[in-house]
C-alpha cells in the first residue's frame, strides 16, 4: 500500500518556500503602500486548481503564523467544500487554530462575501479574486488597462454604468461592483455582492486581495475610503429583501433564496452561517 499521507517535514511551514514568501510579502507591502493598485507577483502553482482560491491561499500562506486563528468562508458559509478544504489545508501545513467565529479569527480568508459581524482592528481579511482588473470586460488589453490606471482615466467605467442605466433604468451590476480606493485607483472588490461594498469603506481591518491565475495582489489599508461608483442622480444602493431569514429572523443580513419543495416554495436564509447561528 502506498503511503499517501503527507510526511511530517515534507513541506516547508505554510507550504510555500521562504523565498516565495519573501517575494509575496514584499508585494503585500507595496500593495498596502499604493492602495488599490494591482501589484504583479510570481504566483506559484498550488495544490488546487485556479478558481479555487490559489491567490488567496498564497497571500494567507505568506502572512500566517502559529499564533493565528484562521476562518475560511465560501459565499458566507464555513461548511462548504472550498472553505472546508482550505481550512484543513492550513490546519495541516501551518499548524494553526481554526474557527468559524468571525470575532475569534485573526485571519479570515473569503470567497465572495464579507462577514456580517463588523470586523475589528488587527484582523486581516484575505479575498480570493478571479479577475483583479475592474476594466477587463471593457478593455481586454493589459497594456491599455495599465495605461488607463496610470492616467486615472476611468471614463470608460462611468460610461458602462451609464449604459446600464440607459438600458435598465438603474445600475444593474449586483456583484463585483467597482469601487474607487482613496479617490485614486478603481478596484474590483472581487465578486462580493454589492451589499458588502459599504463594509469595505473605512474598515478597521486590513484587506488583502490575491488573484492566483492573474498573479496580482492588491490591498486596502484600515480606515481607507472605498467609494462605490455612482451618479448624483443614481446614487449607489444595496439590495433589500421583503423577507427575513427563516432561521434567525434577521432583516439586516444578505439572504440566499432557496427552493424547498417541488411546488416552488421559497425560503430565505442568511448567507453568513456564523452570523445566523450566533443569532439563533
Amino acid at each position: 500500500m502506498p503511503d499517501t499521507s503527507i510526511t511530517e517535514g515534507a513541506y516547508n511551514y505554510a507550504y510555500l518556500d521562504e523565498q516565495t514568501k519573501r517575494m509575496i510579502r514584499r508585494a503585500i507591502l507595496k500593495a498596502v503602500a499604493v492602495p488599490g493598485y494591482q501589484v504583479p507577483f510570481g504566483g506559484r502553482e498550488m495544490p488546487l486548481p485556479y478558481g479555487w482560491g490559489t491567490g488567496g491561499i498564497q497571500v494567507t500562506a505568506a502572512i500566517i503564523g502559529r499564533d493565528d486563528t484562521l476562518k475560511v468562508i465560501d459565499q458566507g458559509a464555513d461548511d462548504t467544500t472550498n472553505a472546508v478544504s482550505i481550512r484543513r489545508f492550513f490546519a495541516h501545513v501551518a499548524d494553526v487554530a481554526t474557527t468559524t467565529r468571525t470575532e475569534e479569527a485573526t485571519i479570515i480568508q473569503t470567497r465572495h462575501r464579507v462577514p456580517e459581524t463588523p470586523l475589528k482592528g488587527g484582523q486581516i481579511l484575505v479575498f480570493q479574486v478571479p479577475i483583479p482588473e475592474p476594466l477587463r470586460m471593457l478593455e481586454p488589453r493589459e497594456t491599455e488597462t495599465r495605461t488607463l490606471h496610470a492616467l486615472s482615466e476611468y471614463g470608460v467605467m462611468q460610461v458602462s454604468l451609464y449604459e446600464s442605466i440607459a438600458r435598465h433604468g438603474r445600475i444593474s451590476k449586483s456583484y463585483n461592483y467597482p469601487v474607487q480606493v482613496n479617490g485614486r485607483y478603481i478596484m474590483s472588490p472581487s465578486p462580493i455582492p454589492k451589499f458588502d461594498n459599504p463594509k469595505l469603506d473605512r474598515s478597521p481591518a486590513l484587506q488583502l486581495y490575491g488573484a492566483g491565475r492573474e498573479k496580482r495582489i492588491y490591498a486596502v489599508p484600515p480606515y481607507t475610503p472605498v467609494k462605490s461608483l455612482d451618479f448624483d442622480d443614481h446614487p449607489f444602493e444595496i439590495e433589500r429583501w421583503n423577507e427575513c431569514c427563516a432561521f434567525c429572523g434577521s432583516t439586516e443580513s444578505f439572504l440566499d433564496e432557496m427552493i424547498v419543495d417541488d411546488a416552488g416554495k421559497r425560503l430565505f436564509v442568511c448567507s453568513d452561517t456564523d452570523y445566523c447561528e450566533g443569532r439563533r
Binding site: K21, L29, V32, A62
Partner: peptide, 19 residues
C-alpha cells in the same frame, strides 16, 4: 528560527505599514 521569526517580524512590519 528563520521561518517562524521571519513570519512574526513580517506581521509586525505589516502592522506598521498598515498603520
Amino acid at each position: 528560527d528563520p521561518s517562524h521569526d521571519a513570519q512574526q517580524l513580517f506581521r509586525e512590519v505589516l502592522d506598521a505599514f498598515s498603520h
